[in-house]
């Protein structure tokens, strides 16, 4: 069960993608944090950074970016950290909506409406 054909492999080892860093500061994101790009990619930028900025033109979850880039979530988080530190992205947290452990009834109502409209 070869999941990756040779063609889909890259010569880049993950530690070169992260520049040798192995961990991001986890407090900024979790896997489902929503990433919003704040600028366009520039030439000479690391290709993964450029791709993230392209993907994040519309809000996108960390795992979604991770799946698109075919990179582990933790690598993506390190790359996102670089972009966050240079103010190229902002972060939204889904967990923000579940205040006091219960969803906000207004939100639920709107979700229900939206689902009915699907």
């Amino acid at each position: 069960m070869s999941r990756r054909s040779v063609d889909r492999e890259d010569p880049d080892r993950l530690y070169t993608v992260t520049g040798g860093r192995t961990r991001a500061d986890e407090t900024a994101f979790d896997s489902v944090s929503l990433i919003v790009g704040e600028c366009e990619p520039t030439p000479g930028m690391q290709s993964e950074h450029a791709k993230i900025l392209q993907l994040a033109r519309r809000p996108m979850a960390v795992v979604e970016i991770s799946a698109e880039l075919r990179l582990p979530v933790s690598v993506v988080k390190i790359l996102l950290r670089d972009l966050l530190d240079t103010n190229r992205i902002t972060v939204r947290h889904p967990s923000a909506i579940t205040r006091a452990g219960r969803p906000d009834p207004e939100t639920l109502k709107q979700v229900l409406l939206a689902l009915h409209d699907l």
């Binding site: 999941r3 979604e64 799946a67 979530v73």
Partner: peptide, 15 residues
């Protein structure tokens, strides 16, 4: 449906 298989799962067990 994006399979995040390559992100955080283990295919061998799954198979």
């Amino acid at each position: 449906p994006l399979s995040t298989e390559e992100v955080m799962t283990q295919a061998s067990v799954g198979v």
